[in-house]
């Protein structure tokens, strides 16, 4: 992608290509259904002062949000996997049930730090009154 900007002599030509690509992408969004529902996006965009009747732009924002969340989630997944891999082998037998990939605040805060979000979470945080009683069964 760098070559678009690096070579300015071809810029008019490449811009034309980019325009076409963008137009195609926006057109393809008409058929694309992002995981983030349109209604949710419209609600929050409307709350922030955004006005646009074009559903393609809503979808574009939805896809961007989805990408953002997915990036964070995949980073957290890597952290999770790395943490599990670092556990010593003899302990791993005991923590067999913990081998499942669970999104925890530990991994999430590590991932979010790279995205400019500082999440400070408590050492022990009770999600609900039943938290800590039977953690394994709750997280099934």
């Amino acid at each position: 992608m760098n070559n678009h900007h690096g070579q300015s002599q071809q810029s008019s030509e490449s811009k034309h290509d980019d325009d076409a690509a963008l137009t195609d992408f926006l057109a393809s969004l008409m058929e694309y259904t992002p995981t983030v529902p349109d209604e949710l996006v419209e609600h929050y965009l409307g709350k922030s002062g955004f006005q646009c009747p074009d559903v393609r732009l809503t979808r574009l924002v939805a896809v961007a949000t989805q990408k953002f969340v997915a990036d964070i989630a995949s980073d957290a997944l890597q952290h999770c996997k790395a943490r599990q891999a670092s556990v010593v082998k003899d302990k791993r037998d005991k923590q067999q049930k913990d081998k499942r990939l669970i999104l925890t605040m530990d991994d999430l805060s590590k991932a979010l730090r790279e995205y400019g979000v500082n999440v400070k979470h408590q050492e022990y945080f009770a999600d609900s009154p039943s938290a800590g009683l039977d953690t394994a069964s709750r997280d099934e």
């Binding site: 983030v36 949710l40 996006v41 929050y44 965009l45 709350k47 922030s48 924002v61 949000t65 953002f68 969340v69 997915a70 964070i72 989630a73 995949s74 957290a76 997944l77 999770c80 499942r100 990939l101 669970i102 999104l103 925890t104 605040m105 991994d107 999430l108 979010l112 979000v117 999440v119 979470h121 945080f125 999600d127 609900s128 997280d139 099934e140």
Partner: peptide, 23 residues
């Protein structure tokens, strides 16, 4: 992405961040 399960606190924070991003 590949997670099998999420904790409530993580899900809450992540959905808050998603809303904030939209906003």
């Amino acid at each position: 992405v590949g997670f099998e399960s999420v904790r409530d606190s993580g899900l809450d924070s992540l959905s808050d961040i998603a809303i904030r991003y939209l906003h």
